[in-house]
Design a protein around this nucleic acid. Sequence first.
DNA 1: TCCTTCTATGCAACTCGTTGCATAGACAAG
DNA 2: CTTGTCTATGCAACGAGTTGCATAGAAGGA
Lengths: 185, 185
Amino acid sequence: MALEHAILVSLLEKPGSGYELARRFDRSIGYFWAATHQQIYRVLKRMEHDGWIDAREVAQPDRPDKKEYSVAAPGRSALSRWLHEPIEPESVRHELAVKIRGAAFDDPAALIDEVERHRKAHTDRLAHYLAGERRDFTGPEAPETPDAGQELQHVVLRGGIAYERMTLAWLDDVIATLRRLGPER
Amino acid sequence: MALEHAILVSLLEKPGSGYELARRFDRSIGYFWAATHQQIYRVLKRMEHDGWIDAREVAQPDRPDKKEYSVAAPGRSALSRWLHEPIEPESVRHELAVKIRGAAFDDPAALIDEVERHRKAHTDRLAHYLAGERRDFTGPEAPETPDAGQELQHVVLRGGIAYERMTLAWLDDVIATLRRLGPER
DNA sequence: TCCTTCTATGCAACTCGTTGCATAGACAAG
DNA sequence: CTTGTCTATGCAACGAGTTGCATAGAAGGA
């Protein structure tokens, strides 16, 4: 399980509450590790119980109070231990690929709209990544001498950008293939 | 849930036993939808109970008997229904990306070996995909006029190839970044 | 002969992840 | 003044996925 470790990384980058973490998992780190707020609250509770993180009650005058978490020493060494462990190759779950193969037993052309919907989602995400890259790393507001953390966030973001570009090119290939097969049958 | 649908696609491509399906999920369709034999046997049982698939006992003289499954009419229409439903954008789980961001709080250089191990795994998988493409689609043994099923399997495989190439280029970027950060700290 | 490997199927227990629902204060719009 | 939205946290139930173990026939090697 790696949600604990993703949370540790996120809390080391910046301490925050369960709610704030949940929002980060909707953007930023969530693009590489998805999680809902339920999962996050449950795991935070366990991590606090295990002494990996410290909680601090923060009273907010104009909002409900929150519990701000930060990483404790045992959490830091747990992260370090995990970083030195080898990990298995990712097990992929690519539903769209299954659908495309399945289209052979149905109407291939009927999938085109769906694939174009995905294409649009990936176009949006690419634009979002590129805007983030300009804002944080390559634009005029970006630091001239980034630290290790920023360099590493940037290389991960570059991976996201490369992934979206590759996916867009592939989806075009898929659409062209579906169109080619459609009318004949 | 889509394991049922991945199994339907695989059984439509070719009927087989739970064991044979488990082996396909180690190659082929398993590159886009991972599953263990336990999951497969359990889901097959439910699908048979629901009338989606038919089972046929096959006695084998030199091996244990097996149950060969094939898709029944209700299974086919279930697949068709699923193909016409929209699906959510994939929720990603990219453990290595989390580790790379985590490396900022540890020794970045210590990750290099791990990343190189992944690089090797992706090199092997790319070679495997390319060999499969040559064997089934672009080589001299390949059919001159592929049917829809083959065209669609090919476009999915091209996606896998593009993914591996993109990943290899990105891992080189990651390694270069880690090396750059390593010695300074 | 024993040990391992391959084919073939399955149970039981557990953990992880998802979905629906609930609560509650603060604020803005209608 | 009610309704909706945002912040903030959480429970309960269920479904999906993982891990460990068990069985059993056949083949091949030490």
